[in-house]
Design a protein around this nucleic acid. Structure first.
Lengths: 185, 185
DNA sequence: GCTATTCTGTACTGAATGGTACATAGTTTT
DNA sequence: AAAACTATGTACCATTCAGTACAGAATAGC
């Protein structure tokens, strides 16, 4: 099936950036219209559920990306250490070396009346489970793996906050490098 | 000077919680009115600048608290290690063992058109400078102190994000404990 | 070509937004 | 008690909000 004029999937990345930049409440339809170049007619055609559907669609797309590019390599890669190594490079690229912020983190903090709580929770839960599995497969004991998992996920999220707050993206890259070193990769 | 009916300083903590809970955009005047019990008349009497002045006032109060209870002990305490130790306990209490979220972190991510960028930046910059000084006084070399400072600040912020996202405040306490252990206190 | 479907711009709605105006109520000071 | 200042509730403003309705354009299959 060929596309007609525009396609829903074309809009999702733009929507993602808008929500990143403005948050859910701050991303008004006028902002979205301007950023996407689509009028309300098109937007409500693609997302009959309005802003909420746009947000869940973006979160789903993000989840898909991480499932394929991060979680599955962690879970199923033949070499556990390679999977972890791959995670760090994927994350470094995804967050544009600290220039980009984590939309799921934004939604987690703002927690819009728990509207997206499930998607937010499973994003981190899946990541934690996959990383934990990879760490144990790499030889870490159960308790150590659990601690390391939390430290790495928190380190990534915190570095993104810090980098944005201090307007210094390099903070993120430095933090990633140290986290990597922590598991002697 | 005794108070009349209400006082600006009485409202600030409530405003802080409202902004934490709803973010800046999500904290509508009706929400603020309900939470504080003050009508628009009173609110605009105390904060002629409206919501923006409320937010900057809250950020200032937070800054004051951290200056007194965290940064100064780190900078000027006779025992550097004691200052760091004190920081961890103060932070654990301030964030209610992970039940509370960092308002500055929320504002940093949402970054409302950089309206509060200065206050956000100096919050972390002051904290980093104070912690860095304490670590060097405690014997760490310059480079190690800088890295540790970033790891600790990022670890705290990230643990708050994670705890809120996973609805498990204990994640925060566990992370704090490990960060503490990292500098063998 | 024709028809069905997909897409999009425009105009509109009612509700909610932040903010203002102002009269009145409460409190201090004198 | 009178005056002066502080505080507050209410009504109101223009603007923006998300969402709806719908006609018509663009595209598809035939």
């Amino acid at each position: 099936m060929t596309r007609l004029v525009a396609e829903r999937s074309d809009v999702l990345p733009v929507l993602g950036e808008v929500f990143r930049e403005h948050g859910f409440e701050g991303a008004s339809l006028s902002v979205i219209t301007e950023a996407t170049g689509l009028g309300k007619g098109s937007l409500y055609h693609f997302f009959p559920g309005g802003k909420e559907e746009m947000a869940t669609a973006v979160l789903s797309e993000i989840d898909d990306w991480f499932q394929v590019n991060v979680y599955q390599p962690l879970r199923d890669g033949e070499d556990a250490r390679a999977g972890i190594n791959h995670m760090f490079t994927a994350v470094e690229q995804y967050f544009r070396s600290g220039h980009r912020v984590c939309l799921v983190g934004v939604f987690a903090l703002n927690n819009i009346r728990d509207r997206f709580a499930d998607q937010v929770q499973s994003y981190f839960a899946d990541w934690a489970a996959a990383l934990n599995k990879a760490l144990t497969r790499a030889g870490y004991e159960s308790a150590a793996a659990r601690s390391l998992t939390e430290d790495i996920l928190a380190g990534i999220q915190g570095a993104l906050v810090l980098a944005r707050a201090m307007k210094d993206p390099k903070i993120f890259s430095r933090s990633l490098k140290r986290l990597r070193k922590q598991i002697d990769l």
